[in-house]
Amino acid sequence: MDATEIGLWGVPLAILGGAIRVSTPFIFVSLGEAITERSGRINLGLEGTLVFGAMTAYAVAVMTNSPWLGLLAASAAGLCFGLFHGWICKFPKVNDIAIGIALMLFGSGLAFFFGKPFIKPKAPNLPAIPFGAWSDIPQVQAALDVNVLFLIGAALSLVLWWAFRNTRAGLIVRVVGDSSDAARAMGLNPNTVRLVATGVGGALAGIGGAYLSLYYPGSWTERISSGQGLMAVALVIFARWNPLGCFAAALLFGGAGALGPALQSVGVTQGYYLFYAAPYILTLIIMVATSSPTRSLAGAPGELSITK
């Protein structure tokens, strides 16, 4: 066995590498959705925002030759989508879930429309930090090439977790999410707070999209997303609206998603469809294990239309 073969060690290494590579869009979209849902709204449109963000980032990076400008443009585009959702939903009798689905289709369609000329050109990628440089095994080096966005996402989840508990802004978002009446009595305007929260959520989802097109897999095609945006929205409920939980859940999904290809690569080839279902089976198991017939979902914001 020479140095290029790592055999069964490839599996845990692939899960680790996969968790780091695949999870970043999940982290950003689910953190964005956590902020929005904590304020009492659900924005299902983040899948569309993600795809539009991926397209915008790629297009701007191609035109300006700077991935950072692409990232900025993606978050600005996401902000616009979020603000649009927040603005429409302030009108009475508007259903936030229906608007979200509309925006999901609108975002993807618009991205396909504007994205046509950018499928062929090649954009510069976001840089990665080689944390694996200490090792002389190329597989370890590859697995530990960590993109800066992953680190930002990790830091952001810590900051948000702290901010929801300890800052005035965090408390405002939470009170608006738990009870509009209480918020109004405090002199807060729930619509304004939700507008801002949905806007910030959209901006984060746009960044998640930029990661897809500018780092991993690192190109713009119309099939870039395969539903990460929708899955991330579900992750928020799975994570009980806790930013740290969102981060952990995203890592879990990323790692579990890498399991199928990794097992096939070491020769465990039977039943790969079952391995591909691993993330979802895991979700079901955890949901069943933590559910209870006697209490409602812990941590759910009271104003959310699905818990009301």
């Binding site: 897999p217 690192g218 997303s225 591909y276």
Partner: peptide, 11 residues
């Protein structure tokens, strides 16, 4: 499936 194809190639 863009992401899964990338994972498969890496594996």
């Amino acid at each position: 499936l863009a992401v899964k194809e990338a994972e498969a190639t890496n594996a």
